[in-house]
Nucleic acid binder design. Sequence first.
DNA 1: TTCGTTCTCTTGAATCATTCATGTTTGAGG
DNA 2: CCTCAAACATGAATGATTCAAGAGAACGAA
Lengths: 153, 153
Amino acid sequence: MTASGNRGTTTAAEELRAAGLRVTAARVAILDTVRAGDHLGVDAIAEGARERVGHVSLQAVYEALHAMTGKGIVRRIEPAGSPARFEGRVGDNHHHLVCRSCGAVADVDCAVGNSPCLEPISDAGFLVDEADVTFWGLCPACREAAPPRQTAG
Amino acid sequence: MTASGNRGTTTAAEELRAAGLRVTAARVAILDTVRAGDHLGVDAIAEGARERVGHVSLQAVYEALHAMTGKGIVRRIEPAGSPARFEGRVGDNHHHLVCRSCGAVADVDCAVGNSPCLEPISDAGFLVDEADVTFWGLCPACREAAPPRQTAG
DNA sequence: TTCGTTCTCTTGAATCATTCATGTTTGAGG
DNA sequence: CCTCAAACATGAATGATTCAAGAGAACGAA
């Protein structure tokens, strides 16, 4: 295990270099933070990066995340009504569960085989390249805090 | 045919009253605009409402749309990276096609039967009540303007 | 019809995420 | 070591949305 939070196949530095991005302390820290975190927002990523390498400006974080998203080494999700979040899981076609109450995000594997959701019945002439599925509901914790009416009566 | 743009079953005034909202000129105009339009944004709705009844403040539009969304008589969609849009089609479980280039939005009926997408494989303990599916791609117009590489080579 | 309560509307200011602008620093090849 | 584009920092700007407080209007009750 390396010192840079390598969790899986490649180190952050290798990923960056392979993507044609320069390997800077800030970007390594940002990518490590995204990978170690769980659907973090920009502020949380900035904080995590700072814990690793001292000072990193918020703009550098935005810039880096934009570049990494463009290269496909991080994925950006943006549930309606909340700021953008980023995750390190890319390549697989997974979707998300979002809690209406606390905003928590959890991954869900794509249900129907490979890409069921990737093909709308009628595409209205659109050239579709991605399906973005978000399931809305209450997370376990919020379910308990505000039980809907499951067995009441 | 009434004078209020009734398109289907009920008039805007009736819908508002049935939902427990007061019937004001502004709200009737806003609801009519949303129903007549095609996934309009807040500004466009405000303009449309003004064309019908003179002056309507932007805040009144936000307030009204919020109330109507809460009552389920309009639906709010918010494709990642763009401001909120509203539509009058509610009750059916339809999804959306969004153009990456121009932002155009088109409806798609839910493919798999009633609510295929409504049940994630693993719900991670979440109490899911809605599935929000967005298909990303290029609309016919943008496809032509910037042909990807369909038969190139 | 008149009255009163409460919802709705207006004006104006504030918030928050994100982007733009500009100058400085630095990674990486030559 | 040198050069230059990529990346970074600081600071300001933008744009959608929300908050605040008082004026106005809808609707049920009297």
